[in-house]
Design a protein around this nucleic acid. Structure first.
Length: 364
DNA sequence: TCTGGGGTCCTAGGACCC
DNA sequence: TCTGGGGTCCTAGGACCC
């Protein structure tokens, strides 16, 4: 049987910080900007299990986290460290599995040929022990012949567990779970499903397609088949390990403003950063998008597709300022809100091949 | 208490073409 | 004078994930 094994690191950023510091093993540790040091506009990136017991979770505003857990030990995030550690983990997995597809910085899926559930579980425990001993990091494993079910199984195995769901037990495993346990069903969709009395995956399995379609769209039938324990290839197969589709840089301002003279220089700096990253990744870009988040948290975006793939900072700076200027212009005519966050993204990335002259080379 | 910094994918409407 | 159906591209917006 072809199994998909999913691995997800437990409290990843925190674990990267406290490995080799056994005195912190039982402590409430939070990775994020420390509000006691004046950081106000931030959220928790990762919380240890003792901190979670006090109601601290990822994405919680740091001020609230500090109120809930005053004894917490705060550690500033170190993304290069987490990226390096992720490479070590992937290296270790690649030595043991046929195909390893990274799904995020702290998650991966693998393909594995094994005759029965017991031998998959034994394999997962071995790899789990190796990660614990060699890298001193906790991980959880889930396995199923179906990719999406393997991921759900991993969630149910946390922390430091292994959960194997054989094909014939899929419906039984999924049906008691709330619908938002399925990756892809978030708060908005689960609320709309609740309004038609679909609360659990079992409810979803028995729901009328005509009621599901307005909520789940084209994919309604696929979701229902999954809920019935027979996911189609769109949910069952490992995704291909494709290159990046877009890259972006985001900055939340220390204080909201609507002054272009403040905003444009920041945007130009972001354009330079982004152009450097894209170049370092060996890509060119053919789409540019500027997104503004206003003080009321609503967003507005403006984008442009370029006539040809481009590279370099000069063009990106010009496009970014032009797009942002149009958005600010439009806002001045209407509400007059101030900007809280600037985002700049480049999309339609293509590998830069030798002999091609980027658009930027022709002018300005 | 006041909400980060990355990403992916889907949908819908209008333009344009046949 | 009123009138197709289908396909693709582009832009904007939204939901979701870690």
């Amino acid at each position: 049987v072809r199994w998909i094994v999913h691995v997800d690191m437990d409290a990843y950023y925190v674990s990267c910080e406290i490995r080799g510091r056994p005195e912190l093993a039982e402590a409430a540790v939070i990775v994020g900007p420390n509000p006691a040091e004046g950081a106000s506009r931030g959220v928790v990136l990762s919380a240890s299990y003792p901190a979670r017991a006090k109601g601290v979770r990822s994405a919680l505003p740091v001020a609230l986290a500090a109120a809930r857990c005053p004894e917490a030990i705060w550690i500033a995030p170190d993304f290069p460290k987490y990226e390096r550690t992720a490479q070590e983990i992937r290296g270790l997995l690649r030595a043991r599995a046929d195909r390893v597809v990274p799904l995020s910085i702290d998650e991966a899926a693998m393909e594995l040929e094994r005759p029965d559930p017991g031998s998959v579980a034994a394999w997962a425990r071995e790899v789990q022990a190796e990660i614990r001993e060699k890298l001193r990091l906790p991980a959880s494993f889930g396995a199923s012949p179906y990719a999406i079910v393997a991921k759900v199984a991993t969630d149910r195995a946390k922390p430091a567990g292994v959960r194997v769901v054989p094909a014939e037990e899929t419906a039984e495993f999924l049906s008691p779970l709330p619908v938002d346990a399925l990756p892809g069903i978030g708060p908005k969709t689960s609320e709309r499903l609740g309004a038609i009395s679909v609360h659990t995956v079992g409810d979803l399995a028995g729901a009328e397609l005509s009621l599901l379609r307005p909520i789940l769209g084209r994919g309604a039938a696929s979701w229902r088949t999954l809920a019935r324990g027979k996911p189609g290839p769109e949910f069952a197969d490992l995704p291909p390990d494709a290159g990046p589709v877009q890259r972006s840089v985001d900055r939340t301002l220390a204080r909201d403003t609507d002054d272009p003279e403040e905003l444009f220089p920041i945007l130009e700096t972001m354009a330079e950063e982004l152009a450097r990253e894209v170049e370092a990744g060996g890509h060119r870009y053919q789409a540019v998008v500027v997104r503004l988040r206003w003080s009321d948290f609503s967003q507005l975006q403006r984008g442009r597709k370029l006539p040809a793939p481009a590279a370099g900072a000069a063009l990106l700076r010009r496009e970014a300022v032009k797009l942002a200027g149009a958005l600010l212009e439009r806002e001045r005519a209407g509400g007059g809100r101030r900007v809280r966050r600037l985002s700049l993204a480049v999309g339609e990335l293509t590998p830069r091949t030798a002999g091609q002259r980027p658009l930027d080379a022709f002018g300005g």
